[in-house]
Design a protein around this nucleic acid. Structure first.
Lengths: 196, 196
DNA sequence: TGCCATTATGAATTTAAATTCATTGAATTG
DNA sequence: CAATTCAATGAATTTAAATTCATAATGGCA
């Protein structure tokens, strides 16, 4: 009895992982249920014993992503720039070392902009993307002179979009040479007093 | 007679623009022929007098994108960093001022990674994305000390991915505060001699 | 004006993928 | 070891979207 439940859980996870890989690589709409079933090695019909629809399977993944993001979003930091360095390094190391983390990250990014995802979910993703918090920290950095001047929200976006797109690219082209996290922090850093 | 041909060309272009907007915003697969027809204000059937299939319409757009990219890719420049500043500024100003340019840019980026696009087309896109050329210029910059050290290809990717994702974000969220082109050049710039 | 050729329509057909279901096989329990 | 429940299959059904087609309206022109 215990065995059966455990087995079921395991199978469920296999489906989630297979779908995640395909969704991220081909897109949700271009992924057929039969693709997922084949990848897991199970019949099409059985897949519907685990998830009542393709949509439900997709939302289950988004839910996992939301949980994961919640637990991540709190980095303690001393100085403003250290926060961004730590964030970038955390995301990049997870991206390279944990394919699943990278894929979830990409899935969330894609969902955030997709008109097919309910607004409520998209809002949650946007909310705990931490852009607003980043903008706050940038303001602190501008006050103490460590961050360059400019619209804090625009700076936050520039930084996050760059990090996100790098992670996304890596998921799609795992052979690419990987950029260094600190390069992206230079987007924010105040280089005023430099001459070159 | 002349009138008719001109009219036909105009209609064709209307379809292309409508499809471009939808493809970029919702994705190709999630865009229905009926969405496009409705947006243009034409019956579904008539659309097939202009393009023999949804795929053909999509490829026509990619062709336009390839042409456009060819004409852009040559920026004259003095110093390595000036090349990147000019490129970023050109792309950003086009993005903000010419919605069509921005959308084509995003369409090409999406196609580049899509497994549904024939490899031959994807290779062309990758080819004239100019990443290889960028890496060359970065090497020059490293030689003269203006660009930081690190894998030139990784630096080129970091820069282009950041620029691309910013343009893409703007297409999807036109209200976002727009980052400054020069911020992204700081990804490449050698800041070694700075103390802050 | 009456005649083609072209533009236009939208209902009918085709196609492809999602979902259901009748049936079989395997494991668990009394 | 039968009985029962759950896992598993894949063919049949449903659904949604792409594509075709019979038919009507329109515009240029002899």
């Amino acid at each position: 009895m215990k065995t059966r439940n455990a087995q079921k859980e395991k199978r469920r996870r296999e489906i989630l992982y297979a779908a995640l890989d395909l969704f991220v690589r081909k897109g949700v709409s271009d992924t057929k249920i039969s693709d997922i079933a084949e990848k897991v090695g199970m019949s099409i019909g059985l897949l519907f014993n685990y998830f009542e629809s393709k949509e439900a399977l997709y939302y289950a993944l988004l839910q996992i992503g939301l949980e994961a993001a919640k637990s991540v979003s709190e980095f303690p930091y001393e100085k403003p720039l250290a926060f961004f360095t730590a964030s970038a390094e955390y995301i990049f190391s997870a991206t390279v070392q944990e394919p699943v983390v990278a894929r979830i990250f990409v899935l969330m990014k894609q969902a955030q902009y997709s008109e097919n995802v309910p607004e409520a979910i998209r809002a949650q993703i946007t909310h705990n993307s931490g852009i607003a918090k980043a903008a706050e920290i940038i303001k602190q950095g501008q006050a103490d002179g460590s961050v360059k001047s400019g619209d804090p929200l625009a700076l936050a976006l520039a930084f996050w979009l760059s990090i996100q797109s790098t992670a996304e690219a890596f998921v799609l082209m795992p052979d690419m040479p990987f950029p260094k996290a600190e390069w992206f922090v230079d987007i924010l850093k105040n280089h005023k007093e430099c001459s070159i």
